[in-house]
Design a protein around this nucleic acid. Sequence first.
DNA 1: GCCAACGTTGGC
DNA 2: GCCAACGTTGGC
Length: 154
Amino acid sequence: MKYWLMKSEPEVFGIDHLKQMPEQTDHWDGVRNYQARNMMRDQMRVGDQIFFYHSNTKEPGIMGIMEVVREGYPDHTALDPESRYFDPESTLENPRWYMVDVRYKRHLQRNITLAELKQHQSIHDMPLVRRGNRLSIMPVTGEHWRYILNLETI
DNA sequence: GCCAACGTTGGC
DNA sequence: GCCAACGTTGGC
C-alpha cells in the first residue's frame, strides 16, 4: 500500500464536500498536469491512503485522510464543453486526462498546517514543503506518513 | 492582490 | 530543439 497527498482548494472542493457526497466518495477530476496524471493513471491502487490537503486558503494544510476506491480511468470532464476542465485535445478514443475515485475516511483531530510542517526537519525533503512546489498530487513515504500522523496528537 | 516558481506553447 | 512569452499555482 502506498501513501499520497492531494491538494484541493476548499472553496472549490474541500474535505467537507467529499464527506457529504453519497457514500462519501467522489472522482478526483480536473487534474491537468501530466506528472499528476501519470500518478493517478499508473501508480495509485485501491486501498492507498491519501492526505487531503487544502491549498490556496488562509491556513493551507493537511485536513484529513481519504483512500483510493477506484483506480485511474479517463476524466470525463475533459470531454464536456460545458466544463471548466474541458480540453478539446482529449477524445473518447484517446483520453488525455485521468482521475481516480476517493472515499473520505476521517478528519485529523486537528489541522496540520503547512507552516507547522515546515518546522519539522525530519520531513524537510517532502516536495510539499520545498520552495516553488506546485504539484497537486505527490507520493508520501511511509516514514513521512507516520511522522505526520504522530503530530496529530501533540 | 502580489508575485515567484514553474509548466506549456509556439515561433523560429 | 531552443527559448521567450504566457498562463497557472499557491504561499504569503
